[in-house]
Design a protein around this nucleic acid. Structure first.
Length: 554
RNA sequence: GCGCCCGUAGCUCAGUUGGAUAGAGCGCAGCGCUCCGGACGCUGAGGCCGAAGGUUCAAAUCCUUUCGGGCGCACCA
């Protein structure tokens, strides 16, 4: 809002310079406004003079001075100064900040959400873990990133659908069936070897136990039995996954089955379409996709020489299907170990005639669980993974979600279980939630003194009484929410919200320690309550986006 | 061997997409309520941004090389 005013001021100054002949008319200007790191450099600054310098063959400092002379900034700015080697620093009047706060208060917190989505349809696909075992902590990280990202995109005006892709057509489900079958025979008292290529986890035994407990009738023929068990086990595991996700607060709009693509014939149809476009060829009895003619990658097999289609084949069909369902942007969230798959996918997107940037892949780096300062193993194959459920039971939903968002997704994450469990100041989740509860507590006390925060709107509140440096700082922090949301949405980086919150809340705690909110001066008290009201709403709104609760008491 | 990601304070990590004197939390050394929730705040020490070149008015950020860590390189999914 205020940022926009600064852009206008710069534009006007440039136009005025053009009229005076100081700037050539044909020059086009895209002022970049940033928030300086140092407070003493003002609230906003622009580096525009640096860009003009080579074109005008003048030094940037001189240009900065000329621009400032031609600025009509008095309404918004306390002062505008040339600085450094050619920066222009803008110092916003305190009353402008206060008025902006009042404006947001009057319009409601929604006024802080940027409108950049324009209703464009986004399909965000995440988790998509094969139903061959319970979700582990790595899936949990992807789940939160996807969930929170979709919250962010919705808030900025996108239409978002969250989808889970179930790979139920591949060999892994078959393997799960075999694994269950062998465990089942063991339970029947047979001495059968358990091959190492089967799933080793305890949960496979549980599946077999379930079959016996429920007295399920198993086909005599071993092949049929395996097939039956594959389906049974897959469905059962999938139900467990769904429950874990719900417990984690991650709700999907759609579960999309790979097998459905085959049943509808979409896979064959897509291969046929690629064949017509001459994007495929036969070699060694297999059908190959010309990946190399689109991206820097090798050609890949779509149909194996035994006639079976590869995962890649159905994946092309899947993405085609997503586009045909009317989505403008597709977001895929994968474990970072799949990064080698990106060129292939991008190539296939091009072959569908789509812009490769219409698909965005977010990679989730590994999570290391720490207990007593030592890493905990989590290999699925070895059967000693730490499941998402275990972590949830241990630290709770709020801490788990928050911790997953404390790193950008493409960076390794060390998840300290002991820290997440602590109900103390060391735990960042509590630091944030405590601020929310603390503000609420002030409101409770205010009510006892006869001021009900809910009827604050009936009062004449004079925000010009908010003159403390800390108060202006908090106002700026509240308004900054807008920029953070925009940046987070554009870069698809949900962790920015977490860092913003920690920073914002720190400002509050500091203010709280120095300043009494409730006092004898009723007008001042009302003004401060309004400030805290808006602060609390931003905190609550941010926590809501993160899917973390905002307690009124702790 | 080829490709991708990461190397920033003792530890865990940010760094506004190329900006000014590099930040936070934890840890460490101190300090602070007769007062709205001490689950808090304040002060201090701590750095050649892995290394070397290059591009630029300006580099932690971009390019090249190099070292260290992780992950990929299937007619698996």
């Amino acid at each position: 809002m205020i940022r926009k005013r600064i852009v206008e001021i710069i534009d006007e100054a440039c136009n005025s310079c053009k009229e005076k002949g100081v700037l050539p008319h044909e020059i086009s200007i895209y002022p970049i406004i940033e928030i300086p790191r140092e407070e003493e450099f003002g609230d906003y600054s622009t580096n525009i003079a640096f860009f003009l310098a080579p074109k005008l063959k003048k030094n940037p400092q001189e240009i900065a001075k000329i621009l400032i002379q031609n600025m009509r900034s008095g309404e918004v700015c306390e002062k505008v100064e040339p600085a450094g080697k050619g920066f222009i620093n803008f110092y916003i009047r305190d009353e402008i900040w206060r008025n902006a706060l009042k404006e947001v208060y009057d319009k409601g917190i929604a006024a802080l959400f940027p409108h950049i989505g324009n209703g464009k349809k986004v399909l965000i696909e995440f988790v998509s873990a094969n139903p061959t075992g319970p979700l582990h902590i790595g899936h949990g990280r992807g789940a939160v990133v996807g969930d929170v990202l979709s919250n962010i995109l919705k808030k900025v005006g996108h239409e978002v659908v969250k989808e889970y892709y179930i790979n139920d057509a591949g060999k892994q489900i078959q393997t799960l069936g075999e694994s269950t079958y062998i465990r089942w025979r063991e339970l029947k008292g047979e001495k059968v070897p358990y091959p190492g290529n089967l799933y080793q986890g305890e949960y496979v035994k549980d599946l077999a136990v379930l079959l016996i407990e429920r007295n399920v009738s198993i086909p005599e023929d071993s092949e049929k039995a395996i097939k039956f068990m594959a389906r049974f086990a897959g469905d059962t595991v999938m139900k467990g996954i769904m429950k874990d996700l719900v417990d984690f607060g991650v709700l999907f709009d759609s579960f999309y089955r790979e097998s459905g693509l085959y049943e509808k014939g979409v896979v064959d149809d897509t291969i046929e379409m690629l064949r017509k476009k001459d994007y495929v060829y036969e070699k060694d009895g297999a059908l190959w996709f010309r990946t190399s003619s689109f991206e820097n990658d090798e050609d890949r097999v779509l149909v194996k020489s035994d006639g079976e289609k590869t995962y890649f084949a159905s994946d092309i069909a899947y993405h085609r299907d997503k586009f045909e369902r009317g989505f403008h942007t597709l977001i895929d969230i994968w474990g970072s170990d799949h990064h080698g798959y990106i060129p292939r996918l991008k190539a296939s997107i091009k072959s569908l005639g789509k812009d490769k940037d219409s698909v965005k892949v977010i990679l989730i780096q590994f999570v290391t669980l720490l207990k007593d300062g030592k890493p905990v193993g989590m290999s699925t194959r070895a059967g000693q993974f730490t499941t998402l459920k275990e972590v949830l039971d241990e630290v709770g939903k709020d801490a788990a979600r928050f911790f997953f968002l404390m790193r950008k997704s493409d960076a390794h994450l060390e998840f300290d279980l002991d820290l997440a469990k602590k109900t103390s100041n060391e735990n960042p989740v509590y630091y944030v939630q405590y601020a929310h509860a603390r503000i609420e507590s002030i409101f409770r006390n205010a009510k006892e003194e006869g001021i009900d925060i809910r009827s604050l709107r009936d009062e004449e509140v004079d925000v010009s009484l908010l003159t403390l440096k800390e108060e202006i700082t908090i106002i700026k922090g509240i308004l900054h929410f807008h920029d953070v949301m925009e940046g987070s949405a554009r870069s698809l980086e949900p962790h920015r919200i977490t860092f913003y919150l920690l920073d914002l809340v720190g400002k509050f705690h500091s203010y709280y320690n120095k300043t009494r909110v409730l006092g004898n001066d009723k007008q001042l008290t009302l003004a401060r309550l309004l400030l805290l009201k808006m602060l609390q709403e931003v905190i609550r709104s941010s926590l809501e986006i993160l899917g973390v609760s905002a307690p009124e008491k702790m």
